[in-house]
Computed example of a mutant assay.
Amino acid sequence: MLKLNLEDIPRVKSISKKDFLEHYYKPQKPVVLEEFIEDWPAYNTWNLDYFKEIAGDKIVSLYDDRPVSCDDGFNEAHAKMKLNDYIDLLQNGSTKYRIFLWNILKEVPQLQNDFTYPDLGLKLLKKLPMLFFGGKGTHTFMHYDIDLANIFHFHFAGEKEIILFDQNQSKYLYKIPHALITREDIDFSNPNFEKWPALKQANGYKTNLKHGEVLYMPEGYWHYMKYKTTGFSMSLRAIPRHPKHLSKAIYNVFVMRHFDNLMRRLKGQKWIDWKNEQAVKKTTATLNT
């Protein structure tokens, strides 16, 4: 049975600033830090019941795995509810909804007391720690972040499957034009290579994150994440250092997303369908050459 060409992401127990910069940040390679946050209060206290207690009345935006629609704005939420009610759904295993990019310090400032910012040589954006929640079996589409940031991804409670690709693999991934995602009908956990043959040429990385482990994702990396069990994660980010990535981030934020929203309003579903077709045509053309 064919599988994606994925190598295991290197793992270390802990790491010095010097070694991190030399072996991972400068060459832009991912790494998992296994015992890096055990002195954080969050390591022992952050669980679903804790979040119900301190933030249960907060309204959160929710997302599921429905295909992109012309009726939705760029990254527009599919539903909203109180965090208490959402966590109840998670705990009884009855939801496909995920929390995506929840700014915890904006909503619950006291959570800052539960963690510290890693001193590994990156200038982290301290006002933008983001939380992500999901139930067993839920997943994100393969995507990269709009700002192409360097990311530290801290996982809590349970286990999460991670698949990564460098930006230089985009030509094999059926990337949607004017968007940050690949074709949504690709199951990266079990891809259909007859339907998506270019994936056989892509080379990436994989790992499973468990409670307390930290993944460093270099700037602009494609990532697919699937919750093997119910759990949640926090991301801290730093702006991209490579001029090409920084300029692309600026374009994405100030031009691309607004252009895409405009075309959805003007063209409707025809715009979405055209983009999906172009993803196949361009990737197939690359494969043939």
Rank of each mutant, 00 (worst) to 15 (best):
Q269G: 04
H155W: 12
D166C: 12
P129F: 00
Y172F: 12
R98C: 11
K206P: 09
D49H: 15
L2H: 07
P27E: 05
P129T: 00
L21M: 03
M234T: 00
T286Y: 01
I239N: 10
G220P: 14
D119Q: 13
S61C: 11
G121R: 11
P30R: 02
V108L: 12
G121I: 08
K18T: 08
P109C: 13
Y172Q: 02
E35L: 03
G204D: 09
F141D: 13
M256G: 03
G137N: 08
G212Y: 12
L122P: 00
Y174K: 08
K248R: 14
Q110V: 15
I54H: 13
T140A: 15
L89Y: 13
A202F: 10
L4C: 05
K80E: 04
W46P: 03
T284P: 01
Y43W: 15
P197S: 14
W196N: 00
G212I: 09
K195L: 09
L111I: 15
I272V: 08
Q278K: 07
F188S: 00
G231Q: 03
L120K: 02
G134C: 10
H155V: 07
I176Y: 11
F165L: 02
E7F: 11
T229I: 10
T289M: 03
W271H: 01
P41A: 11
M81A: 05
Q110G: 09
H245T: 00
